[in-house]
Design a binder for these strands. Structure first.
Lengths: 215, 215
DNA sequence: TCGGTAAGCTGACGGCATGACAGGACAAGT
DNA sequence: ACTTGTCCTGTCATGCCGTCAGCTTACCGA
């Protein structure tokens, strides 16, 4: 299943090849953090990795292809985000704690991978199915768990029947992602980082349970 | 104040020049809707406008410069979004109506300008202050009004004192923007367009007032 | 009517990135 | 040393970028 790493022209990559490949990915990742996506050139990545453009094209069809690779890697790590929600109780104090930890974990993940995530976001918004799929993979990790939580509360009669669990969960997750992408934006509204989190947690808690949290 | 339109080399643009300039902007706008931002080339825009690349560079320093121009134009229109919130009452049935109309108006605006907005979003996320400023201009139109609404409810004692109005308002607006950018994403969770809006309105209402809406 | 002046446009050019290929360097086994 | 398959790069054709000089067009005052 874990098909060997292959070059563009079909050869299987050996140890040395994989190292070069990885180095190219690392350098690309670094460049994405420091310069606009539109201005990232193959030649710069290759130079940074101490190799030539031709080598780059041996392992990736183009910049986009390499970006997808990095994104895929990140998506694997993102699967772990499920743990932030799965099996959590949303009643009483533990509900508030669940909200806080969800916000914290999510923002941390997004901040860690912000450079690649904004490219994924762009690709998805532009309608590229490959990026779209990766974005879904990450968000689904959280959204589907949250959806289940909402459904459960609904079935216990603690929540109106006419809310759509998936819509609520999806919207809240989208909110977390958006806020994480533009954290700096809040500073111009006079909102500090530390203040942001509890307010996000409040919104999440309100959205999931329909009630104010008991802290 | 309304400085004349000027070419890159300082000449003032006459009627014909402004027409060409506008045509270039229109064509660029169209291209942004149909192809990835990264792949939009000056030569394509020029060809589409029936002119030459050199002409493009007479009016804009580069693609980014032209995009900023389009974005600025849109931001002016975005100022009208204030009307969706300003002077609204958030109590009782009118509160639910306010939430519904806010969601509707916001999603409509975002959908109308989705191509340019995703580029603005990217630029802002990458830390480009010019894009960032434009994004703020649009979001502020709604956010500051919403912030006022929250403050008012707070001063009347209808809302906890420890919530930060700006953080709440900003987060809700970010949510609306994010959901609008990725509306298609919700379909894969089995959420239809029409279902999405009332659920978003519910979240907005909950966030602003802290209470379930009375419909 | 006739220049004069500024606006408007483009052909052409050096420079650089792209993407493909063939051939040389290198490591490992025999 | 020889073979085999991996790995890298020099080189090349192509195409876009960004600039400039110079040509055409429109406007205006005499």
């Amino acid at each position: 299943m874990t098909g060997q790493v292959r070059t563009v022209d079909g050869r299987v990559a050996g140890r040395r090849g994989q190292a070069t490949r990885q180095k190219l990915l690392d350098c690309l990742s670094e460049m994405l953090s420091s310069s606009p996506y539109r201005d990232v050139k193959v030649i710069d990545v290759a130079r940074k990795a101490g190799t030539s453009p031709a080598t780059f094209y041996q392992y990736f069809p183009d910049v986009e292809g390499a970006v997808l690779e990095i994104a895929e890697e990140m998506a694997k790590e993102g699967a772990g985000l499920t743990g932030l929600v799965a099996g959590r109780s949303w009643v009483g104090k533990s509900g508030w704690q669940a909200a806080e930890e969800l916000v914290d974990g999510f923002l941390g993940f997004w901040r860690k991978h912000d450079a690649i995530l904004r490219v994924v976001d762009l690709g998805a918004a532009e309608g590229d199915k490959r990026f779209y799929k990766i974005r879904m993979k990450i968000l689904n990790a959280v959204t589907s768990s949250l959806t289940d939580s909402v459904k459960e509360l609904q079935s216990k009669g603690k929540l109106d029947k006419d809310v759509n669990p998936a819509a609520i969960a999806g919207s809240l997750v989208a909110m977390l992602a958006a806020v994480a992408s533009h954290q700096k934006g809040f500073q111009s509204w006079g909102v500090k980082q530390a203040e942001l989190k509890p307010n996000l947690a409040l919104l999440v808690h309100l959205g999931i349970t329909g009630k104010k949290p008991t802290k």
